[in-house]
């Protein structure tokens, strides 16, 4: 508890933008009395309370669980999505990792597919539309199947679980010089493609998700590894290679062709 008495001072440069139509700019605020034990978002709460007390508009930023699992927080801090701490979201980052008196630059995710709504809040519904295109399995309702009826090796179960760790925050897009969404798309496709429950719709899923990803205006993957470096869940880029492979197979199989009525069929 001894650290709580050391209060820190920061020079906060944060993106202020009234709405999508109005151009924004970085605004500087001097912020003192910050405890090193505060989370990054608690620091922003402090800033907002002071702005509110002065009758100014508080800074809008996305947040929900503040436990690093919901994927809502989305701040680019000093040029790095989710800040300098590796494999954590910005909500789980503490002020003690910054230097007293430091300037901290806070910007929203930047991508054509993620337009700014206000201040540091961006619209990430493009991700929802990619999920709607194929990030699901079709299951017949009925009794719960026996858990052991479908054998899955430990290696595959672990790999699918690694992919499923994606919280859909969009840091991969924010970090990528091309605003590519491939780490997200590959994780969301692979978590289902790897498992027997997801195999049936694998080809269609991969093609639909890639098609939607392109239509939403995300860029291509140039294998820079930036996405992997900032991913709060440490999802590896090897899933992107897996998606490329699955995409190539689906194409070779002709899965992208319009279905034709077969002889004697409906």
């Amino acid at each position: 508890m001894s650290t709580t008495s050391n209060s820190m001072t920061f020079n906060i440069r944060i993106w202020r933008q009234k709405n999508a139509q109005t151009p924004g700019k970085l605004v500087e605020y001097k912020l003192d009395g910050i405890s090193p034990d505060m989370s990054f978002l608690e620091m922003l709460d402090q800033l907002n309370e002071r702005l509110y007390a002065k009758g100014e508009e508080p800074v809008a930023f996305d947040h929900d669980c503040r436990e690093g699992i919901c994927g809502m927080c989305s701040l680019n801090v000093n040029g790095i999505p989710h800040g300098p701490d590796s494999q954590v979201t910005i909500c789980q980052t503490h002020m003690r990792i910054f230097k007293d008196g430091q300037t901290i630059t806070i910007e929203p995710w930047r991508s054509t597919a993620f337009p700014v709504i206000k201040d540091c809040v961006v619209n990430r519904s493009a991700f929802d539309r990619i999920i709607q295109a194929g990030g699901f399995v079709s299951v017949n309702t009925g009794g719960t199947p026996d858990a052991n009826a479908l054998p899955i090796s430990k290696e595959i179960a672990d790999l699918a679980m690694d992919a499923a760790a994606c919280i859909g925050c969009g840091a991969c897009v924010a970090a990528c010089k091309n605003s590519s969404a491939l780490l997200f798309v590959s994780a969301k496709a692979s978590q289902l493609n790897l498992l027997p429950q997801g195999k049936a719709e694998k080809d269609r899923r991969v093609l639909k998700m890639v098609e939607t990803m392109d239509a939403e205006g995300f860029g291509a993957c140039t294998n820079t590894n930036s996405c992997e470096a900032v991913c709060p869940k440490g999802i590896p880029v090897t899933f992107i290679a897996q998606l490329n492979r699955d995409y190539a197979w689906a194409m070779l199989k002709g899965a992208a062709a319009e279905p034709k009525a077969t002889v004697g069929g409906a």
């Binding site: 040029g79 991508s111 700014v116 010089k177 091309n178 605003s179 860029g219 590894n225």
Partner: peptide
């Protein structure tokens, strides 16, 4: 061309390109 368009008009004031050679 597509990658540039995807990045958008508004660029980062600070961009560290983490992990990228």
């Amino acid at each position: 061309i597509r990658n540039r368009a995807a990045r958008g008009k508004e660029s980062y004031a600070e961009y560290a390109a983490p992990g990228a050679s």
